[in-house]
Design a binder for these strands. Structure first.
Lengths: 169, 169
DNA sequence: TTGGAAAGTCAACATGGCTGACATAAAATC
DNA sequence: GATTTTATGTCAGCCATGTTGACTTTCCAA
């Protein structure tokens, strides 16, 4: 592993690929992600929920009616983990799981009014921080931010991401 | 909460601040961070360690001789949580905790050769993904990526980040 | 009608957060 | 010199959330 050696430079500078630059990116990801989750986490403490509930609520709001299996793929956890979370959300009346119309084995997930209210509270907080960061960095930086993040995702997830990226339902 | 209304546009377009754009950034952060941690996590499974050990090793490698308290601040966890991790790393001979020279209450943390070897294995894997993403996105995008992440951090952590950003020791 | 997929459930376990309480050593302060 | 504060370590226990494995129910489709 040729540490820090960007190799012979072609036309464009490759200095942005040094180990030093990569390390800065890695640390920035760590610190930024912690801030990114901090606001919703604080809100969730007031309820009896955790980050896992937030994620489920987010994607159900995003694609109302999505199946458990789809949600499983998006979240990248086991059905047992997800089930524990979904059960409490359904019991508490934040999520409704309707039997599928075409395939009755499937469950289509929807937020109730209460679920939507919590989703709003959580995403308002998360968006506020993101908005401040976007504003501070400017539109060109935001474009680069998204480009790098997309290039970092696992290809299969990136396909999912793209397919839901531009349309709500 | 004026959902999606960027308000009256001044000279520069504010379309990048719409809720839709923010939502894409939020989801991109989630998916990218998962990929970001996936490679080290896979390696750590072979040892008996977890993500917490990785983080400790990373920062000890970054600032050899740093104190437990400093590490605590960087990681943002309780001393009990960190202690559990540090104890196993010291017992297993990956980390050395030397009594402070000036203040003997302090412990200065260093990686042993074995610790440094694991650090290299982990960061090589993490850098490989980051490098591929950087290369795919290009230098301008990388600059924007870092800008947005820095703007997203909590101010206090951002100060820490900046102070160690450009120098190794 | 039967095989297999989708979903739900139970049990058990690991990791890594947390709090609270307490111990020790050393520095700092009175 | 005595006291307080600070840095660290440690024990015990709790919680959230991830895991695997085994099993059941439902129901589509061959």
């Amino acid at each position: 592993m040729a540490a820090g050696s960007p190799g012979v430079q072609s036309g464009e500078s490759l200095l942005f690929l040094t180990d030093e630059q990569l390390r800065k990116g890695i640390e920035a990801m760590f610190f930024a992600y912690r801030a990114f989750t901090a606001d919703p986490d604080r809100i969730l403490e007031n309820y009896e929920y955790g980050r896992a509930h937030h994620r489920a609520i987010h994607f159900i709001n995003r694609q109302p009616g999505l199946t458990v299996n789809t949600l499983l793929t998006l979240l990248g956890v086991t059905k047992q983990s997800l089930n524990r979370v979904l059960r409490t959300l359904v019991e508490d009346g934040l999520v409704e799981a309707r039997v599928g119309r075409e395939d009755k084995r499937e469950r289509n997930l929807f937020l109730t009014e209460r679920g939507a209210a919590l989703e709003r509270e959580l995403s308002d907080a998360q968006r506020a921080r993101m908005r401040a960061a976007y504003r501070a960095a400017g539109p060109a930086a935001v474009a680069g931010f998204r480009q790098v993040l997309e290039a970092m995702m696992d290809p299969e997830i990136h396909r999912h991401y793209q397919s839901i990226r531009d349309g709500a339902a």
